[in-house]
Computed example of a mutant assay.
Amino acid sequence: MQISFLLFPHVTQLDLTGPAQVLSRLPDAKVELVGKTSDAVPTDAGFPLLPTATFDTAGTPDILCVPGGFGVTGAMEDEATLAWLRHTAEQAQWITSVCTGALVLGAAGLLRGYRATTHWASHEWLAAFGAIPVKERVVFDRNRVTGGGVTAGIDFGLALAARIAGEDHARFIQLSLEYDPAPPFDAGSPDKASSATLERYQKLVARFASDRAARYQAAADRLQRRE
């Protein structure tokens, strides 16, 4: 079971490492972190991840997964990245994403006509890439599987593991990871967070990704011209 995660600068590492930890426990699993080059890739957590393969050397995956993070705008603008995704998706059994990685799949033209989800703060942009937005934590549509924001990647991994190896094995993975969430606060969605917390998040986005909406729109426009 070959599992390939796209690795790009300023990825949210938990979008990748959460589902990677789960999916690595599928029978005969092999996880690859695929970068444009073999250079270490900075994450938004302040530490780098090292690719285990490049676009030129990566194997043909059974599962292709695109994580998210503030770096998705750069990935959406990089034609080599989009070309690799299109080529790889032709051969993969499962084409998947976590968080705003869905928008990278969208920019590659891989979600048109598919039901999908993403991080709540970017959910409205799914339709711009021809996807059908669904506000659920994990969404399956044929061989497309998308997870919501960040921590939803663990749920995504378990749900996909159940489809591939059966629910009993997925339950075994859950137990082995002691995945028994009991968050100390009930503020994990915009519907539950206070207005002050929500405003603080919006200021963070304005600081680190003030041009995000414009770059999302430009990527959607490029896809439309290509098609």
Rank of each mutant, 00 (worst) to 15 (best):
M1W: 04
I3L: 05
F5A: 01
L6Q: 06
L7N: 01
L7G: 02
F8Y: 10
H10T: 08
Q13Y: 03
Q13K: 01
L14P: 01
T17M: 07
G18R: 05
G18V: 11
P19N: 06
V22P: 11
P27A: 03
D28I: 02
V31S: 06
V31G: 06
E32L: 01
E32H: 06
L33G: 01
L33I: 00
K36Q: 14
T37N: 07
S38L: 12
P42M: 11
A45S: 10
F47M: 14
L49F: 00
L50Q: 15
L50G: 06
L50F: 15
P51E: 05
T52Q: 08
A53H: 02
F55N: 09
T57C: 02
A58K: 05
D62V: 05
P67R: 03
G69F: 01
F70P: 12
G71P: 02
T73A: 13
T73C: 10
M76L: 04
A83G: 10
A83P: 07
T88L: 13
Q91K: 15
W94A: 07
T96M: 09
T96H: 09
S97W: 06
S97M: 12
V98Y: 04
C99P: 11
T100K: 07
L103R: 10
V104M: 02
L105W: 00
L105G: 12
G106Y: 10
A108E: 00
A108D: 04
G109A: 01
L110N: 07
R112M: 00
G113Y: 04
T118F: 12
H119M: 11
E124G: 10
W125K: 04
A127F: 04
A128M: 11
I132C: 05
I132V: 13
K135A: 15
K135G: 10
N143A: 12
R144A: 08
T146Y: 08
T146H: 06
V150W: 11
F156Q: 12
L158R: 03
L158V: 05
A159T: 07
L160G: 08
A165T: 13
A170Y: 14
A170V: 13
L175D: 07
L177C: 08
Y179S: 04
P181Q: 09
P184F: 00
A187M: 10
G188F: 08
G188V: 03
K192P: 04
K192T: 15
S194M: 03
A196V: 09
L198D: 01
Y201N: 08
Y201H: 09
Q202M: 11
L204W: 15
V205F: 12
A206F: 08
A206H: 10
R207A: 13
F208Q: 14
S210H: 15
D211P: 00
A214D: 13
A220E: 06
D221C: 00
